[in-house]
Amino acid sequence: MGGLECTVLIFWVSILSLSALVEIRDLNFAYDRRPVLEGINMNFPKGKLIAIMGLSGCGKTTLLRHIGGALRPTKGYVKVDGQVIHELDQDGLYRMRRKMGMLFQFGALFTDMTVFDNVAFQMREHTDLPEEIIHDLVLMKLHAVGLRSTYNLMPSELSGGMARRVALARTVALDPMLIMYDEPFAGLDPISLTVVGDLIRRLNDALGATSIVVTHDVQESLKIVDYVYFMANGVIVAEGTPEEIRASDRDFVHQFVHGEMDGPVPFHYPGGDYRQDLNL
């Protein structure tokens, strides 16, 4: 290998590390003095699909809300596209959020609008596009999730899986550079689960976006993601590629991935002696 090639390689490596779209450094957050996140460090490189996994209540959603700028960290920072989120003012934050998309746990479709108006919402709010172009764009987005002909239905007329896909179409309406998914698989039947998982992967690659999936659905997410962070009690306990995670022999990860009842996470809520509680 010549010197020139070596320099080029170093150059590309540094570009790669610089090109982390989201950078989280020493993030701490306490809610009413109760620590929720402690010393979180994460990197989300451009174009990757990354999962954050952990038990319910381990701070995954709180972490997402920090990236979206809905919460202020008590210590540390979240940097998106080179800007520290909590230092932005209202206008700056709103400008930043236009480049983000977020899929909420149960879709959070606007129940007083049709499917079409839901997907068109951001286009109408943030662009001056004429109605004909919006019409075509909306149908393209709906086609991408396979629900083009539902455009005039109300969200209440959709099944759970369909509503999730419409919400997905709405999330990517403005082609965001960062897409966040909060429990995208919660409450879906196995078919919808596979469909949504596949869509998340394909949309990420097609848009050249970076995606963060917060989930506790291990099997589905391990199939689609590039990298996994494991969280427990507000700290990162493990990280790695899906293969590394599957092969991991660490107790917690093993229990989680294989869904075992007892292990580092006990079946019983911690408490006093059973015998004592029964007055024996």
Binding site: G68, R97, M100, A108, L109, F121, Q122, H126
Partner: peptide, 11 residues
């Protein structure tokens, strides 16, 4: 979460 969703859409 429709209101949070709207906020996340910068509206």
């Amino acid at each position: 979460e429709q209101i949070s969703a709207m906020e996340m859409m910068a509206v």
